[in-house]
Amino acid sequence: MKQKTLFEEGSLWPVIAALGIWAAHFLLSYWAAALWCAKAADGSGSLFWVRLAIAVLTLLALAAIAWLARHAVRRYGGRLTFEDDLTEDSAAERARFLGHATLLLCALSAVAVLFDAVPAVVFSTCR
């Protein structure tokens, strides 16, 4: 029951969920690198395993965001528009508004997640 209300149509959580995914991805990547370099790295400071982990994390995060975006479109009728202002006085319009915001935040989060993956492509050692 709880599980259902959390994502049920009309809840506020999906709006922040995408950014939550970004935050998790950001923190996990940061921790993985910081812990690896502080604790596990050998003399060469190779980041191979961390980079692999970040690659997996990034794919997972993007998949989760994609699922959320689909949810926003299907359940909320969210669309990517600029002109349509969603100002009607009805519960359905409010749901569309939330869907719209969720969708936009999914796009923003996806970009931010990709940005965060760039350092893992660029750097190959702890130094």
């Binding site: 931010a112 893992a120 750097f123």
Partner: peptide, 18 residues
């Protein structure tokens, strides 16, 4: 801090400009 850690923060700095 390791370079890669700093990289994560630069990435977020750029994302926030959007």
């Amino acid at each position: 801090l390791p370079n890669i850690s700093l990289g994560f923060f630069s990435a977020a700095s750029e994302a926030v400009a959007i």
